[in-house]
Design a protein around this nucleic acid. Sequence first.
RNA 1: GGCGAGGUAGCUCAACGGUGGAGCAGUGGACUCAUAAGCCAUUGGUUGUGGGUUCGAAUCCCACCCUCGCCA
Length: 598
Amino acid sequence: MSTPVLVAVAWPYANAEIHVGNITGAYLPADIVARYHRLKGNRVLMVSGTDSHGTPVTLRADAEGKPVEEVYKRFHESFLDLFQKCGLTYDLFTTTHTENHFKVAQSVFLALLKNGYLYTETRPQWYSPALNRFLPDRYIEGTCYLCGYEHARSDQCDKCGNVLEPEKLLNPRSKVDGSTPELRETEHYYLDLSKLEPEVARFLRERQHYWRETVSRQTLGQIESEGLKSRPITRDLDWGIPVPVQGWEGKCLYVWFEAVIGYLSAPVEWANLHGLGDVWKDWWVNPESRTIYFIGKDNIFFHAAWWPAQLLGMGETFMEIFTGEKGQKLVLPYDVPANQFMNLEGDKISGSRNWAVWGHDFLSRYDPDPLRYYLTVNMPEMRDTDWDWEDFYKRNNDELVATWGNLANRVLSFAVKHFEGKVPDPGPLTALDEDILRRVEAGFESVSAELEAVHLRNALGTAMALATEVNRYLDQTAPWKEIKTDRQAAARAIYTALRCIDSLSILLSPFLPFSSEKLHQYFGYEKPLFGKQATRTVQDSLGEHTVLLYDPDDASGRWEPSQLQAGQPLQAPQPLFKKLDASIVEEERARLHAQRKS
RNA sequence: GGCGAGGUAGCUCAACGGUGGAGCAGUGGACUCAUAAGCCAUUGGUUGUGGGUUCGAAUCCCACCCUCGCCA
């Protein structure tokens, strides 16, 4: 039974590079789950893209004196490169700056408008004559009219904690260039979230029993105490998606409203790029489909309340507008397994202070699988965790290398050396052999259960515990002793251990795809476990953009126990992982402190 | 300020009303196929603080302290 699984991954914003906290927060868990479901034979679509619009990108472009397209594309290209190096197998990683996304987002807007969930309101907004544009409240500071604090944000004072009315701020100035802004009246569309509140609350309660408490309790708690309040969904900006209403030129859809629609537009683009027409409906209209959203805790309210509200508000109208079909609703989120945050050496990760382990920088010195291993065993699933170089070094050497890498290496080396480079013929198996095979093969159930629940640290821990059991089995059967007196007993033990390792390689492959792929080759299999990643440049009316794609054609991996046959030729193995020198701990810490800005 | 999450062995976590557990690190031992890895044994905790409920509390209640996120 093949289930459609939409793996919806947070869209990185185009004004910062990606660090290990971003990877463990959303991108890596998404990839692990996607790879697992592919091995299970489910129809996986993993999508995301660069969130390219909004004020921060335009201000950055202003500061650099460059076209805004150039700025977003620079980050976008960097993301594409990093994701390939990490083995993050997006079926499509695109951007919000595409003709397709514009069309889908505008259709969502029109569906909500038609269904009566949008209204307009005119309010004063800060305008910078110097920059010739409106500025969001957080870019304006001034003196608090309540406590006199001189560096209050226009919407809130950090000193006295009060929420401020922006137009009452004293001595306002732009945080961008220090110039004095003025208030101008401007009209915007608002999404009437209060109307949708009962439905959103029901949606959350229905899923509360299996969602993470950190997600459902926070969202429901907030709604119950303060209610869902309306939010503006348009902005005075020229970089973004135009509001599809006559007379609204010069205004764009607000990024909070528009970027999440990427989860819907990306499958549409994916289907178009593959010439598959409306097959995207398998994930978006089919009620059997599971849509799982991988995000960090800062994004919980967006994905657990506002995005469901948008989907509920659209009802069947989106499909009527977008494809002309009636009676078809989009599916609501199945799960939002948001992660907490990862800190770094005891301090909060901060891009602006350059206190971060950056993805590209890490991979210039280390391999991707040790990164994936450490980020998984230390994933902030329930609470914040800490990246600690000492811990990284130990877990690499004492767990990844010692328990798993060494197991594969010792058994394969022994087989190559003593059994002519082939899987030995075991003859009849003993109860001990059957027992270890059964235990490892039970992993296809137990690891599965943890993965389905998105308990990834437990899933990896369960698989690693099986590697320890195989090490124990080897100690009991001691083929290095038997080979001297009872060749058949040694053959039996090595065959059994090889079959266990072959199974473990599958169980670990969602977490450690690069080394499992290598191991798969050492076992003499011709086809790879997973497919290939590739980029492609796409033209549309907005220009061109590069996308990352996943080609599953050669993938042969199956979430099933090894069927290893005696006589299969083996390759002489190389160690799967590098043992690290203790000196890296101090080197990396010194590097961090040297790059840090105050 | 409001809404939430978390504070358990040196480290990372599990127990969510019934004698505080696991992995890693540490210590001791036998082995040698393997990246001096693996295996066996073992040290280690007034469960953030102070109260309360209970025959019994890490677990429930109250107050406080600390960390973190969200508040459109």
